[in-house]
């Protein structure tokens, strides 16, 4: 509102012919949208384009300087060098695992929030789900490092049962990422389930279905697009992450680390850019695949 008013006052200073033009709603909307469109266009898509262009450049292996000549060497290396193939597949696997763990954890919580809890409890739970997002990412990752440490909390709770901490590694990374991204799965499923009219559940019961049957035949199929919508978040966030694996991942490496190391220590920006395009391409393929489920409509 404030912005609109300020914009209105600004229009007053423009000569009459210009004002008449601006009064036409198209021009006014266009003017309103200009800053965000510039942001999206230049800063966001422009940076992405720059990334692609950079990935097609090379590096002088002797001086380490970037050579602005077109080459597909970076992508060839990515595909042919074993270690990068392994890291790519490992990253995809962990992102998929994190997504599945989050979906399994989030669904009952979201279902309870949307259809069982009282309106008051519902609001409290939404806040509770969002609250971890207010805390610093690093704090949460280091908290997991403490939890998972030898003689840490998990270790001391599990040891009487003859179990122990999984230690630092890919499992710890999966757990930490699943914890970090859980709200991004709960909220879309919650929103999707909340949209379903109660009469659908009642109709299912009315037609003879018990709650298990209703869950399987009505709730799950109808919530599926919302689950896919949540998976877009958890999957893409996991694909790009490099901090959690640094903190709890032990010696394990993910694509994010490769990008980070090539930017920092190796100073091979073109190769880092090539690695960074992998998650982008994977996500584009994923989005195209899930488009048919209607998940994109429920984002």
């Amino acid at each position: 509102m404030n912005l609109l008013r300020r914009l209105g006052r600004g229009i007053g200073a423009i000569p009459r012919s210009g004002r008449r033009l601006l009064r036409r709603s198209g021009a006014r909307v266009g003017l309103l949208l200009l800053p965000p469109m510039l942001w999206l266009g230049l800063v966001y898509l422009g940076a992405l384009a720059a990334l692609f262009v950079t990935s097609l450049w090379g590096q002088n292996s002797f001086t380490g300087n970037i050579e602005r000549v077109w080459t597909l060497d970076n992508f060839r290396d990515l595909l042919t060098i074993e270690v990068y193939r392994t890291i790519t597949l490992r990253t995809l696997g962990i992102a998929a695992l994190v997504t599945i763990v989050d979906a399994v954890l989030a669904f009952p919580i979201a279902l309870y929030m949307a259809k069982v809890a009282s309106p008051r409890l519902q609001r409290l739970m939404v806040i509770a789900v969002l609250m971890p997002l207010w805390a610093s990412y690093l704090v949460k990752a280091y908290a997991w490092r403490g939890l998972l440490a030898q003689n840490g909390l998990i270790d001391s709770i599990a040891s009487p049962f003859g179990l122990g901490t999984p230690g630092y590694g890919l499992l710890a990374t999966t757990i930490t990422l699943a914890y970090l991204w859980l709200p991004f799965m709960i909220l879309p499923i919650y929103a999707g389930l909340e949209r379903l009219p109660n009469s659908l559940f009642e109709a299912s019961a009315d037609l003879g279905a018990g709650s298990g049957m209703t869950l399987r035949r009505v709730v799950l199929p109808m919530a599926f697009p919302a689950v896919v919508a949540g998976s877009i978040f958890t999957f893409s966030l996991s694909l790009g992450d490099y901090i959690a694996v640094r903190i709890v991942g032990g010696t394990g490496q993910l694509l994010g680390n490769v990008v980070y190391d090539n930017q920092g220590a190796a100073n091979n920006l073109p190769f880092a850019a090539a690695v960074a395009t992998i998650p982008v391409v994977v996500m584009l393929v994923y989005l195209a695949a899930v488009r048919r489920t209607g998940a994109l409509d429920s984002l």
Partner: peptide, 14 residues
């Protein structure tokens, strides 16, 4: 509801 021998036509059809 599922154990009763009645069926319902809902206002919003459901």
């Amino acid at each position: 509801p599922y154990a009763r021998d009645v069926n319902t036509v809902f206002q919003d059809y459901a």
